[in-house]
Simulated assay, not measured.
Amino acid sequence: MLPAERRTKVADLVRSAGVVSTEALASELDVSSETIRRDLLVLEEQGVLQKVHGGATIAGSSVAVSEPPFDVRSEEELQRKQRIASLAAGLIPSGSLAFIDVGTTALLAAKALPHALAATIVTASLRVAVELSDRPGLDVLVTGGRLRKGELALSGMLATATLAEMHFDVALLGSGGLHSEAGLTDYYYDEAQARRAIIARSARSYILCDGTKFEKIAQYRVAGLADFTGVVVDEAPDEPLAKALQQSGAQIISSS
């Protein structure tokens, strides 16, 4: 394949996915990662795309490379997150095997679960596990993995191996950003991989996302809009995100 032809394919893949890793591009096109890095440099100089850590995204996108610490985020947009949490907590039926993600909104959703609920809850968040530890009707399972300090989140090979053995009735997942083209993205590579695995193993999967994350792109792609069941939001998103969600078949559950 000629370099020009390969770069056209790279550009098409980035436009299609929104965010793509260097490794994924190299695998798709059967070339080395170094070749892809050179292609990305050329395409960025041409204004076709934008390089980010570990890959590339749509040209002109505002890519967020980090998020504030947990304690800071827990105080931000609290009313928005509480409205989302209240809706999300009602999505876990009695007798189900459910996954609750890491993050501030997911923790609030765990707190909002009905005290009479009888279910098995799997989580990669030590904060969620502690919150639910004294609920008499809940069997709480915690994935293994490397601990991300501050967030008290577990990820990596052990977490992925644990998740591979399960099929969830429902999953409540956090978000770094939700974009009409890039889809669901996250700030941490291992956690993005884990979320992707959870979506694939869930009968129903819902993304918890307040309005500050609409049309925002974090560094690592998790899934397209058609890959999950729906989104739980504090307010209905504006165009083009609302249209993209509707076209993908994703349910929009809103408090407004």
Rank of each mutant, 00 (worst) to 15 (best):
S62W: 11
E151V: 10
L141K: 08
Q247S: 15
S254P: 02
V130R: 12
S248T: 08
V72F: 08
A110H: 01
G60N: 06
L91H: 09
S74P: 07
A64L: 14
E45V: 08
K216N: 09
A161T: 14
R7K: 12
S16E: 15
D186G: 05
E34Q: 13
S125K: 11
I198Y: 01
L49M: 05
L173C: 03
G95T: 04
E191K: 03
I121F: 10
P68L: 04
V48I: 13
G18M: 09
R195G: 05
E191D: 11
S32G: 15
D12K: 11
L163G: 08
E131H: 11
L43R: 00
T35S: 15
L113H: 01
A4T: 15
M1R: 13
L78T: 12
K111F: 08
E67M: 13
I58E: 03
R127T: 12
I207Q: 02
R135T: 01
D71I: 14
Y220I: 14
L184D: 03
S66D: 07
E5P: 05
E215P: 00
A119C: 11
E5M: 08
T160N: 15
A242V: 12
A129N: 04
V19Y: 02
K81P: 01
H53S: 07
E76P: 01
S21P: 04
L87R: 06
E23A: 15
E5G: 09
E23T: 14
A26E: 07
G90H: 04
R7Y: 11
S86K: 13
D71W: 11
F168S: 00
S21Y: 02
P69M: 10
P69A: 13
L40W: 01
L172H: 03
I84D: 03
D227V: 12
I253W: 03
L126H: 07
H115E: 15
G95Q: 08
T143G: 00
I100S: 00
P68K: 03
L107F: 11
E77V: 12
A200W: 06
S61M: 07
V42Y: 11
A11Q: 04
E67A: 09
S66P: 05
D190C: 08
A194I: 02
D186R: 00
V65S: 13
A244M: 01
A226H: 15
Y220H: 13
F228A: 10
L2E: 14
G60L: 03
V233E: 03
T212Q: 09
S27K: 13
D190N: 14
A171Q: 01
D186P: 01
S256H: 08
L225P: 07
A171G: 06
Q247N: 14
A192M: 05
D139N: 13
V128M: 02
